[in-house]
Simulated scan of single mutants.
Amino acid sequence: MTVNIKVWSDYVCPFCLLAEEPLLKAVEGEDVEIEWMPFELRPHPVPTLHPEGEYLQTVWKRAVYPMARRMKVDIKLPDVCPQPYTGTAFEGYQFAKEHGKGTAYTPRVLRAFFQEGLDIGRIDVLTGIAAELGLPAEEFRRALEDGTYRQAHQDALATAEKNLIQSVPTIIVGGTHRIEGVPHPAQLRKAIDAAQAEAAMAENTAAEGAAAEAGGAPADWGATCGIDGC
C-alpha cells in the first residue's frame, strides 16, 4: 500500500534543500508518494532577511555549512538582498502541481536559490524554471501575473496551520508520524515501515483500528528553520 509523505518547506530555508538527499535515500525501493507542501517563514509584509546580516552569517557558519559538508551537498548563502518573499514561487508550485510537475518543482526551486543564487521572487526566473521542467512557460507566467493560483496557495497555507506547522522542513509520514528537521534516513525509514505496518493492519483489522508507533529521532539530526529563526 502506498504511503503518503508530506514535506512542508520554504524556498528560503537551507535545511529544506539538505533534507532532500536523506529523504530520497529513505524512500528508495519503497511504495511511497512524496508531496511537497508550502509554508512561508516570512509572509509579506514581514521583513525578509539580509544575507550580509549577522544572523544569517552566524547560522550558516554554525549549522548550515557544517551539515552540508558532512552530507556532501553543494550549497551557498545566496547574495540576493533582501531575501525574496516566496508567495509567488509557491503560486508557481500550485500551477506545477496541477500540471503534474509538483514533485519536481520544489527541489528545482530550492537548487535555483541555494546552488545558483537566483532571485526566486522574480516571475521571469520562475518562468525559466517552469520551462526547464517542461511546463507551458507563457501560461505559467500569465498565471503568476494574474494571481490565478493565489487562493490555492492560501488554502495550502491553511492546511499547514491545521497541521500545526511552525518550522521547516516538517515531514508527516502516513498522516501520523511527524519528523521535524532534516531527517536521518534510518529515522525516516522507520516511520515509513511503521506507516506501512499500520496500513496493512488497518486493512486486515479495520474494526479494531490498530496502529503502530514510529521511533524517535537520532540526536544529531533535526535542524530546522522556524518563524523565529533557524
Rank of each mutant, 00 (worst) to 15 (best):
A96S: 06
V173Y: 03
Y105I: 00
Y93N: 10
G181C: 02
I227H: 13
T86D: 09
F15N: 08
R69V: 10
P183D: 00
A158C: 01
L77A: 06
V168S: 04
R142W: 08
F113H: 11
K76N: 12
P47K: 00
A194V: 09
V32M: 05
V182F: 07
E54M: 03
P136K: 01
P45E: 12
V173P: 00
G215A: 15
C16N: 11
K72G: 03
D193M: 10
L24V: 07
A199I: 05
E213D: 13
A112C: 05
M201R: 11
L126P: 13
P78L: 00
Q196K: 14
V3N: 06
P82G: 01
R108D: 09
L24H: 15
L110A: 10
E91D: 05
E40P: 00
G175A: 07
P84K: 03
L24D: 08
A219E: 15
R42A: 12
I192G: 02
V80P: 09
A195H: 03
F95H: 04
I120L: 08
A156C: 06
F95D: 14
A26I: 12
K72F: 03
P47L: 01
E116Y: 13
V168D: 06
P183K: 00
R142Q: 13
E198Q: 12
G147N: 05
V32Q: 05
E33K: 06
F113I: 02
I192L: 08
A26R: 03
T86L: 07
T48P: 12
T2P: 15
A199V: 01
A207K: 10
Q187C: 09
T88M: 14
G147T: 01
T86P: 00
Y105G: 13
R111M: 12
L126C: 07
A211T: 03
T103M: 10
W221D: 12
R70A: 13
Q115H: 14
D119V: 06
E52N: 11
E198D: 10
M1T: 07
C81E: 15
C225F: 15
Y65C: 04
T159Q: 14
A19W: 13
L118P: 08
P66R: 04
D193F: 04
D124W: 00
G92Q: 08
I34G: 02
A143G: 10
G226P: 14
A186S: 11
V173M: 07
G215Q: 13
H153L: 15
H44E: 15
K162I: 04
D228S: 14
R122K: 15
Q94D: 13
E30Q: 14
K162P: 00
A217Y: 06
Y93M: 13
L23D: 03
E98V: 05
G216I: 02
W36M: 10
F39D: 12
R150D: 10
E145P: 07
G147V: 01
A206N: 04
Y85E: 13
E116L: 12
A130Q: 11
A68K: 11
A104L: 14
L41Q: 08
R42K: 09
R62F: 05
E21K: 15
P185W: 01
A223Y: 15
P45Y: 02
E116M: 12
L49D: 13
V125H: 07
D124N: 05
E138H: 08
C230S: 14
V7A: 04
